[in-house]
């Protein structure tokens, strides 16, 4: 990115370096949200619909993990992926994939905990009807997830917001390598440490704008879908 440029200038001129950074940020955070949903939605549903010993402590821990400090998640993933760690031979450290892994660790508890609450509430509402209709366990889960889809979309957005906003985890496992693992948030951290505060703030505004746009898109999709299927 050119020195002394304002964020507005970079946006208006379509600066390729900025574009690459935005693109990487979105790919990493959206992928992490996707994988976290793949794990978190079934996990949350399972906890919501089953009764087992130690269920309550599991829920407490899951809810608490929504506040997992990114640095801790980053450090844990770093130690796993480091050449001296158990998965070191995969050579993932300081790659975008490592950042996806770290953010997946961060986002999964959020999606799982919100899914658990949503599905459990909906199950309370649906229990009598579904039992009376003699609906089997598998169809029951599918029904609850499908009917809770709009609330679950909000859970996914919460997870995505967390991923897109955090810097602590990805700067540890990604290394903030220019042109390779540099994202919006690590760029903002870097420009701040260079004392380039106006550019840092400008990039922050760009980041917020993108997150708001995605949220608006999801909202629009939700409204459109609701009109079709209530």
């Amino acid at each position: 990115m050119p020195e002394n440029a304002s964020a507005l200038h970079l946006v208006l001129t379509g600066d390729p370096a900025l574009f690459a950074i935005v693109r990487l940020s979105l790919i990493v955070s959206i992928s992490a949200t996707f994988f976290a949903a793949l794990i978190g939605v079934p996990l949350g549903s399972l906890i919501a619909l089953t009764r087992f010993r130690g269920r309550e402590p599991v829920i407490v821990v899951l809810n608490a993990l929504m506040g997992l400090p990114p640095v801790v998640a980053g450090l844990a993933v770093y130690l796993m992926l480091s050449r001296s760690g158990p998965l070191g031979s995969w050579g993932l450290l300081f790659t975008p994939l490592a950042m996806v892994v770290a953010q997946t660790v961060l986002v999964t508890p959020i999606i799982a905990a919100l899914t658990r609450q949503t599905i459990e509430d909906l199950w309370l509402e649906y229990r009598d009807e579904l039992t009376a209709m003699n609906v089997g366990p598998l169809r029951r889960v599918r029904t609850l997830i499908w009917d809770a889809r709009f609330s679950l979309l909000t859970a996914l957005l919460a997870g995505f917001g967390r991923a897109a906003a955090e810097v602590g985890a990805i700067i540890i496992v990604g290394g903030n390598i220019q042109g390779f693992t540099r994202t919006m948030t690590t760029t903002i951290a870097l420009e701040t440490s260079k004392g380039n505060l106006p550019l840092a703030i400008g990039l922050g505004i760009v980041l917020i704008t993108i997150v708001v746009l995605i949220s608006a898109l999801a909202w629009g999709a939700r409204r459109a879908a609701e009109r079709f299927s209530g």
Binding site: S82, R83, S84, G85, G88, L93, F94, G175, N176, I177, Q178, F180, T181
Partner: peptide, 19 residues
């Protein structure tokens, strides 16, 4: 060249781990 910018101590640690 992919640069990980850290403090000298941390950079040496990173190298020591083989990263």
């Amino acid at each position: 060249v992919e640069v990980i910018a850290q403090g000298t101590g941390q950079a040496l640690d990173t190298a020591r781990r083989g990263d």
